[in-house]
Structures are given as C-alpha cells and as structure tokens.
Design a protein around this nucleic acid. Structure first.
Lengths: 232, 232
DNA sequence: GAGCACAAAATTGTATACAAAATTATTTAC
DNA sequence: GTAAATAATTTTGTATACAATTTTGTGCTC
C-alpha cells in the first residue's frame, strides 16, 4: 500500500522539510518513542549533509518531540507520566478558552474545513491506518486554535498536541473506546452555532475524557521506560 | 562601572551559553529590537565558529526573541502591536492559574528566594540600571511558575516573559509609573499566606496593569516599525 | 564464565572551505 | 544629477574534514 510520499528521500531537502517529515512519522506512530535518530543515517536518507540534519533535530528538540543529549545524539522522546499529566493539564487550561474564541470567530469556510478533517479521520480509520487517524485528530485541535486567531497560544497548543501523540503512543489504554468521533462532531456543531459556552464546555470534557483514557499509573510507567531502555 | 561578566568573550563557549548571553542582553535592553545579529560578528565576539553561533541563534529564534529570515540572517525581534496583545492575553490566561498553584505549594525557602528577587530588583533600580531591574522583574514571574511545579506551563511562561521584555522596550509608556514594587510584594505575601484566591487575583490584576501600561495604538506601531526599517 | 582494562569503531561536536544569495558599490545611460 | 544595470563585496547556506567523546569489541585475569 503506497502512501503518498510526503518528502522524497535521496533528494536535497531543507531542514524545515526534514523536521516536518520526522515529526509526521512520529505523529503517525511509525517511529516509536525511544528510537535513536542517528545523524549520518538521516543525512543518508534525505540526501543532505549532517549540518542540515542537525538543524532539523534541534527544531524537533525544541518542541520536545525528541531528546538531544550532548555527545549522545537524538532519540524520540518518551514522556514520563508526570510530563503526560502536565501536558494534558496545560491543554485543559488553554484549549477550552481557545474553543470559546473560535466559536466567536468561526466562518462557514472554517466549519467546512473542520468537517473535511473529520471525514478524513474517518477515512483513515476505515482504511485501518490508525496512525494517520491520530495525526488528523491532532490537526483538528490545532485547526481550532488557528480559527481562534491567537497565534501565540495556537503555537503552544501545537506543541502540546505533538507531545500528546507521544503520550498516546506510550500510555493509551486499548480497552477504552475511541469515541472521538462524537466529541469532534459535537464540537464543530457548537462552533457552527457560535455557541461559545457549549464549545468551551465540550472541549473541556473532551480533553478530560482523553486524559482519563490514559493509563498513567506508576507501575505502567516503569514497565514502559524499561522497554524503552531496552529498545535503545 | 564594571558589571560582573556573564560570559567572557574571546573564550570558547557552548551554544547554550551564547544563547543565554544574547538573551540576557536583549532582556536588559542592551540590544534594541531590530538590531542585526551577524554570524561572523558573534563568532568573533565569543571566539567560536559560525557553526555554534548558528545553533545559538536557532534557539533564540525558537523562543521568538530573534527573527531569522532565510539568506537574510538574524535580527532582534520587534513584535507588532498584535503580537504584543497576544502575548499579554496569553499571560493573563496562564499566569493567574499558575500563581494559584504556586500559593498551594510555596515553601518558606521559595518565599525567601522571591523576596531576595524583589530586593535585587530594588537595588538595580537604585543603581540606575533599569534594564537589569526589568530582567529581574521578569525572572520573578518565571520563578513563580517554577514554584507551581508545572514545567510545561512554566516553559511557556518563560518564553512569554522573554517576549514581554521586547514588547516593553517598544511600547512602554514612560508616563505610567512603574508600580511593580507593590504588586510583586503583595503577591509574595499572598503566596506566603497560601492564599490561593488572592494570589490568582493579584497576578491577574498585575498583568492587566502591565498590559494597559503599554501604548499599543496603531499609530505608535507604525512609527516604531518605521524606525525599525531604518535601523536595519 | 564474570569482571575489568584497553583497543577499535562509530558517533557527535566544531571548524573550515566553498557555493549561493543578498547587499553594497560602481559604472553607464539618459 | 538620477536611475538603471552591472560588478564587487559581504553574508548566509551547506558540505566536508578533523577533533573529541561515547560506544562497542577484544583479550586478559581471576
């Protein structure tokens, strides 16, 4: 099954494009937390020198998608349970307010775009591509932040969503049903109705649901960080 | 008047240290918004190659202290009035809640540290070093975020405080009195009393005061961006 | 075989060389 | 003299070379 290529390897590429490509791979869970990202390897893959790979890695490190330790290189981040809680608490603080602002400003074109997003998400799920579905689900949130027209906060949310993808990769409980479908749809409806209160409330409860669908017990964390250590 | 040297130039230095040094200079308003930051020049100053200077600049660009435009190099950022509003709106969203958490957790040692901060701030003002006073005033806010023990949100606040320094350099109304003294002191008192409601409320009104002490009218913005264009 | 010392390999950190682009200076036309 | 065109200079972008560090592998002792 050939996916549309997002960045042709073996071709010269800019550091931003490389950061984007790696970021996407992490989002879609094609690269697991803890995976080592060697500079030579990446340089080979993208057909550039290590100089530009290093720039890309620094960008990713900044948004905490990867860890860079001096003289030790880069590896995909694997957030602790503490970090996981923090990320979702931050989202619960920022996003409901943002959804409210978005409800105030959403245009019909915005609503259409969000609905298309949801459709793509369903299509990805139907095509058994849960990684892509997850990525699109994240984009849904950043899209709402964009509609709210608060670039600064939107930037924060973007990094939080990115980190959430890692957290979900590590701590998601398979038992809990993926009921995002309804939540996202209801949210779009509230935005379309310009119902600020409801948008804020729906976003809040949606995030709380996500947060509580994670298994953030300490025991679990230890197991995972062990696996992590082994997979290095 | 020799200030204690924070980073000896002409000596080999790490990229983080260089980013820190430049950041401090910007915070203390020793470098004005719009100033060009040439790679060769910085490499010469810090006695390293452009490679490490570029890494430092990328870090600073990430927290929006500087602008990097492709093939055009780096210059100290000069936020628009829109960005200025956004930054303070974000702070008004994040910091009151953070102050509340800090009130819940503040230890006597924390209180002592904050009081020392305020003293340093006064000392700097007394020594006619308003740049340093401003920097310390910013550190006061990041310190509270640290006490709240939410590293993720603290990181956001840190970048917002950094950008605020630029905004103040550009838009501060000299007419408005610098009455931070009381605000910070009252806040420390609330934290010491573990009075969460009051801490939250004081932080909110302190930020609103700061925000409204800026002259963010369009006319003003145009003037400044012109000066900016000229100083390039 | 376990543990340690040392050697070899691989990987990252930094400086430098060269290419590409933008900026500045100079020439030329009017 | 002004303005456009072009040449010279400066500055940034990228690749490569070498140094420093970490990691891996080997042989030794017990």
């Amino acid at each position: 099954m050939t996916r549309h290529m997002h960045l042709a390897p073996k071709q010269s590429a800019t550091s931003d494009a490389i950061a984007q490509a790696i970021s996407l791979a992490i989002h879609e869970h094609r690269i697991a937390p803890g995976t080592k990202l060697g500079e030579d390897e990446l340089a080979e893959i993208y057909g550039v020198s290590r100089t530009v790979v290093r720039a890309a890695l620094q960008t990713l490190s900044h948004i905490k998608l990867i860890d860079i330790r001096r003289n030790r290189g880069a590896s995909v981040a694997s957030p602790s349970t503490t970090e996981a809680h923090e990320v979702f608490e931050a989202r619960e603080l920022l996003e409901p307010r943002t959804a409210r602002s978005a409800a105030k400003r959403a245009t019909p074109a915005d609503i259409t775009r969000l609905e298309r997003h949801i459709n793509d998400e369903h299509a990805a799920l139907a095509a058994s591509d849960p990684g892509r579905a997850l990525h699109l689900s994240g984009l849904f949130h950043t899209e709402i932040a964009r509609i709210a027209d608060q670039a600064t906060i939107a930037g924060f949310i973007e990094t939080l969503v990115a980190r959430s993808s890692l957290i979900i990769a590590l701590y998601w409980r398979r038992e809990s049903a993926l009921c995002e479908k309804h939540a996202h749809h209801a949210l779009v409806q509230a935005l379309a109705d310009q119902n600020e209160d409801q948008a804020e409330q729906l976003m809040r409860s949606h995030l709380v649901d996500l947060h509580s669908a994670l298994d953030l017990r300490e025991r679990n964390a230890r197991t995972l960080s062990l696996r992590d250590a082994l997979s290095q």
